[in-house]
Design a binder for these strands. Structure first.
Length: 552
RNA sequence: UGGGUUAUGGUGUAAAGGUAGCACAACAGAUUUUGAUUCUGUUUGUCUAGGUUCGAAUCCUAGUAACCCAACCA
């Protein structure tokens, strides 16, 4: 009954902590900086942090890491909250590092009083030069020996706004010869005469990441503070501050960020794509942002499943995009409504069907009976997919060709007799004969056909714009290629076409997900209106025939 | 010429000295009124070299490779 799923390394740590009685419940946090939109990489972290406290007793806080007022804005706060909720997670408290500015200031004073921090008057350049290199020790600043009293006075005056940006800075006094560069008297409080999105103009000094993150964790009693691998060197500093400040000992654990093939996942690169207009915005359906994927038609469930299947570890990785698509199709197959749409139309005339007659046929809406049925109109003139006809049938061809019989989904079996071409050689219409006794549901014709295709009645069809997307980049790992990553953008990542859709689709809503039979999964785009219906193709269906063709 | 982290099929992830497993991908077949779904089967792997052991992905030694670290960013 119970399938024992093995634990990832974080779950092992947590189970041990719980078993040892170190904690009775756990607290995690998701700490975005409100300076951009969330992407698939953040989704990983969200699923991890919130997932852990769903699995084990405890809760997760949402904490905005807003210590740099220059780049941060409330606009991002709202989008981040929307994305987390859309993914299906609930935070216990909505918090901000800026909530702790008073406490953080006191912590800095504590450090000064212990002789563990000092005000440095050197310029940024000079401080950098004195830092040393990976192989050479740094040099002590001449201000390192300032008295506690003087440091206290100077720091208070920094806070009071007596100095200009960059004129002075507070540093921890650790070890300028330390092998970990971050321990070489790190900068902890800098002067920025900048308006903050939450604290307004109250402060002109702001703590650096290292002096805010761990302490915020501690203030919130975070038991397991989970971040990505590049923060490993920071852990030593994280622990140092907690020890010297004698505050709640939160612990930091690191995992490898997930990389997806054929896309980029850094905020900086995504921003470039938007600013250089390679995409239409942060929520362009081709973007790996949460908002882009939502618009494209991804379901929260599919993203959660994906994160779960990928697992969590500490090694570098590039995950196949096909796994994400698999999770998407798996979910959509169970939930999407079925409908018919012809994307690249070819006219079909049923020679022996009565002119002006319309039949109301019944077709199923979903993968099982619970979804019910709907009516689709059928008459003498239809649209079928151009690729469902061949002038000369290929080997293993199940679709229309002169003399070949095919079933139209939920309708009749038709035999193709002839076809017309225009002067350019393009097929304009195919003429077929239908078998009245082959009607779907009570077929007494005894005719067996290999293929079933979708269609739309020409006299009742509605028109929609369909936007089809392909991968954003032509190479698996754009950032590891020669030159600029933008050189590898797939210029054919968006194809817009006009489609004939069955009349029931006029009533589609933004909440609906559709499978257009044999063509893929689709959803309404946010730009869709009553007068201009626009569908996004979320993902294609698997196509065994396309693969067959590719082989030969 | 420092320090840190990581190495398991094409990809991701398990196996805590005892049969290298799972998923995706690929391939072959069955079913199918979606060439979808579903079902069955197949191929492919322990970074290298030594050592310990009845037995090593796992322990030891020595290498190799990849990634991260010198922003008043997070």
């Amino acid at each position: 009954m119970s399938e024992e799923k093995s634990l990832n390394f974080l779950e092992e740590i947590i189970e041990k902590d719980l078993a040892d009685g170190k904690y009775t419940s756990i607290v995690t946090r998701f700490p975005p900086e409100p300076n951009g939109y969330l992407h698939m990489g953040h989704a990983t972290s969200i699923c991890l942090n919130f997932g852990l406290t769903k699995k084990y007793a405890g809760y997760t806080n949402l904490r905005f890491d807003d210590t740099n007022p220059v780049t941060e804005d409330t606009e991002y706060v709202d989008s981040i909250k929307e994305d987390i909720q859309w993914l299906g997670f609930e935070w216990k408290q909505e918090l901000y590092a800026s909530d702790y500015f008073d406490t953080l200031y006191k912590y800095a004073v504590t450090l000064i009083n212990k002789g563990l921090a000092y005000v440095d008057d050197n310029t940024a350049e000079h401080i950098a030069a004195q830092k040393g290199t990976h192989t050479e020790a740094g040099i002590d600043s001449v201000y390192r020996q300032r008295s506690i009293a003087e440091n206290l006075d100077l720091f208070a005056r920094m806070k009071a706004g007596e100095f200009a940006d960059g004129e002075k800075i507070l540093r921890a006094k650790i070890d300028m010869a330390h092998t970990n560069m971050l321990m070489r008297d790190p900068l902890i409080y800098r002067i920025k005469h900048t308006h903050h999105h939450r604290t307004g103009n109250k402060w002109c000094i702001y703590p650096m990441y290292d002096f805010a993150h761990g302490q915020s964790d501690s203030i919130e009693n975070i038991t397991h503070s989970i971040c990505t691998l590049e923060f490993i060197p920071h852990r030593e500093l994280y622990d140092w501050f907690i020890e010297k400040l004698e505050i709640f000992p939160s612990h930091q654990y690191e995992f490898a960020r997930r990389n997806l093939s054929y896309t980029v996942m850094s905020k900086r690169k995504l921003k470039q794509l938007v600013e250089d207009k390679h995409v239409a915005g942060w929520d362009d359906p081709r973007m790996p942002t949460i908002s882009g994927m939502r618009r494209r038609g991804f379901t929260p469930q599919s993203i959660r499943t994906f994160c779960d299947k990928v697992g969590i570890a500490k090694r570098e990785n590039i995950i196949d995009f096909s796994l994400l698509e698999f999770c998407l199709r798996e979910d959509l197959n169970l939930t999407a409504l079925r409908a018919m749409a012809v994307l690249d139309p070819l006219k079909l005339i049923i020679t022996n069907y009565e002119e002006g007659k319309t039949e109301q046929l019944v077709s199923e809406n979903g993968p099982d009976e619970a979804y019910g049925t709907r009516i689709v109109p059928f008459s003498k003139a239809l649209w079928i997919e151009r690729e469902d006809f061949m002038e000369e049938a290929a080997k293993k061809w199940f679709r229309f060709a002169p003399g070949a019989s095919v079933r139209l989904k939920s309708a009749y079996i038709l035999r193709c007799d002839t076809f017309d071409k225009d002067e350019t050689g393009k097929v304009t219409v195919i003429h077929c004969t239908y078998f009245p006794e082959s009607k779907s549901g009570n077929d007494t014709s005894g005719i067996a056909v290999k293929g079933t295709i979708h269609w739309v009645c020409a006299t009742h069809a509605a028109i929609a714009e369909v936007r089809m997307y392909d991968r954003l980049f032509k190479v698996e790992i754009p950032s590891s290629e020669e030159g600029d990553f933008k050189d590898y953008i797939n210029e054919n990542s968006l194809t817009i076409t006009q489609a004939y859709i069955e009349p029931s689709l006029i009533n589609a809503t933004m909440q609906n997900r559709f499978q257009f039979l044999r063509k893929g999964y689709f959803c309404l785009d946010k730009e869709s209106t009553k007068d201009k219906i626009i569908f996004n193709r979320t993902v294609t269906l698997k196509d065994a025939w396309a693969k067959e063709v590719k082989k030969s």
